[in-house]
Design a protein around this nucleic acid. Sequence first.
DNA 1: CTTTAGCACTCCATATCCTTGAGTGCTAAG
DNA 2: CTTAGCACTCAAGGATATGGAGTGCTAAAG
Lengths: 357, 357
Amino acid sequence: MELTQRKKKVLRSVVDLYIRTAEPVGSKAITALPDMNYSSATIRNEMAELTTMGYLEQPHTSAGRIPSAAGYRLYVDELMMDYRLSVDETKSINSAIEEKMQRVDKMVEKVAKLVSQATDLPAISAASRAGSTTVKRFDLILAGQGSIILVLMLRDDQVVNKLIKLPLNVTEADLKILSAVLNAAMTDVPLEGFTSELMDKVMASAGAAASLVPVILDFTQETLKNTGATSVAVSGQAKLLSLPEYRDVDKAQRVMDSIDEETFANLPAVMEGANGTKVLVGPENVASDLKDSSVVMTKFDIGDGMQGMIGVVGPTRMDYAKITARLSYFAESLSKMFGKPETPEQPKLPEPPKKEE
Amino acid sequence: MELTQRKKKVLRSVVDLYIRTAEPVGSKAITALPDMNYSSATIRNEMAELTTMGYLEQPHTSAGRIPSAAGYRLYVDELMMDYRLSVDETKSINSAIEEKMQRVDKMVEKVAKLVSQATDLPAISAASRAGSTTVKRFDLILAGQGSIILVLMLRDDQVVNKLIKLPLNVTEADLKILSAVLNAAMTDVPLEGFTSELMDKVMASAGAAASLVPVILDFTQETLKNTGATSVAVSGQAKLLSLPEYRDVDKAQRVMDSIDEETFANLPAVMEGANGTKVLVGPENVASDLKDSSVVMTKFDIGDGMQGMIGVVGPTRMDYAKITARLSYFAESLSKMFGKPETPEQPKLPEPPKKEE
DNA sequence: CTTTAGCACTCCATATCCTTGAGTGCTAAG
DNA sequence: CTTAGCACTCAAGGATATGGAGTGCTAAAG
């Protein structure tokens, strides 16, 4: 059965009001709204039908109505009005983003904090490398007696290093040989390719510095493993506590516990395919403790083949329009910031001169 | 006025009981204790005196007593019995620590989580470099056209790197010259020494690769600045909510908000001088929102001239004996783990053979 | 056929009162 | 100095009343 225009209007009003007040909405409150030229009785009839249709619920006979999960779903998909960010909001989001962010996990942490501040809700932020990488280049630096610095440059131009200290006398020349061997044999080898035969082969031809090989390859494997990993950060859990739905400490705790890094470690997977912002209303959540909370999330681009995700957790009664708007804006700004290829301090590329400053 | 032996015993019992039950302790509960061969009336007299002396408090006339801040202080300083960790406890702490920890900030995060799990309280963990370091060695690696990897080895053997991409053709030879210049001029120079004269001088003698110099020195300064910074992590805030003193949501929120990274960023400073474990009881805390919570913290050694700190936040009624024991054990284990110079996979140092396994 | 005024009814929230019991302080006897 | 005894206090919890917001239904009006 299709919803009449008026039913939609009533439903939207109920959800809007409930989002604002967190109290069951009565027919009278609806009639008070501008643009609602019906008596409370009419609204009551409409609300009664919306209830039987499953979009509204009644906590008890003589209370107002609250939206059901289906009601929220419909609201999110069709009913809610676009929320336009105010200049102040975009400004504060922008200024928040402009802070310097250096390493990926620091960045993830910062972003989580910023999103939480911008939405006044607990936020999570994650970044993960799409596929696994390989090593593009090995370098070995002799750095004093018994100290060797291993520098790995990965396919995606990420560079990692490790200081190796061995009570072992190796010469510059030995290292040259070893690095040549490594570069010949182990570059472009994915993690799965680290077979013991291959490693033995390297070992055999490594020359004087052979005893370094195990350390080097261990570290390399470790690195390849890690760069595939997701880093996740959570911020602002305590914000839940100021919302009336989480006055119940136990509930709050359960929710806060499930907003843990692990629970969301696989969320980027959930985002797979979906583009734009995704909303999970109450029971649509997998984690049982989130069954009466909602999650809003968006992905963004970090460049270098990495994927980022930001999201917030809040009561099912959250201001979806506002929150999704802020989140999308955030994601867009972040994509703009990171998505581009890195070109820092470049001494002005020869570009067609433009007038705009 | 000195406390009699019996008063101390009573006070200790009250604190112990209150820690266990979180309920005001009555005279009868005390008499029920083993080793308390006095009637409730006697205990009442003692308790009355302890109250006038300021060690105990009465929520209202007809309630039992709870320890005052002064009471806790005395308890922590003199009264509490040493808590011996059970084998299970040390085991679980050890196994928790044994997980691999790689980078400093990852480590800090992990430790916070572990401590929180071990104590069932919100935990913070911080690490900071004592003084500022200098660069021990510059290396430049040519990694394809326009890509140069800068590798800095710091005084404390920490190694950092940065990939520099410039649309610029430099040769291996150019880099050799540049790195020689850098190593000659900029090693062992503290952050304050980065004067513009010095930097100009380097720039002048840098040869073909001069345009790299600003990027390199910027990054170097940035690095020196950062390594001095403290990294802090918090974990397990939600654990507060299961404690009766934080049933009051507002209070819980205030406390959780003040267990923020920033508030504790300067805590390592508080630990300055103090060695061993430090306990801040209720009003002894600076942050006003922590005035009725307590903080227990310990520092540990990370080696490389770094200082670490772990701490927990909880109700004033926390099991100080148990918590300090666990924390100290944690700190010791961490110190053992990090404090030593790193000597991995070392093929057995020649040591006087010992029988103990 | 739709809308609306009117009214009886429901039921939660809040306030009020009462009871119960743990715990105290004091006194007087051991 | 210790302890039994007793009157007193006061928070916590249960029971009961009351007010009010909101509903559903009916019947009249548009």
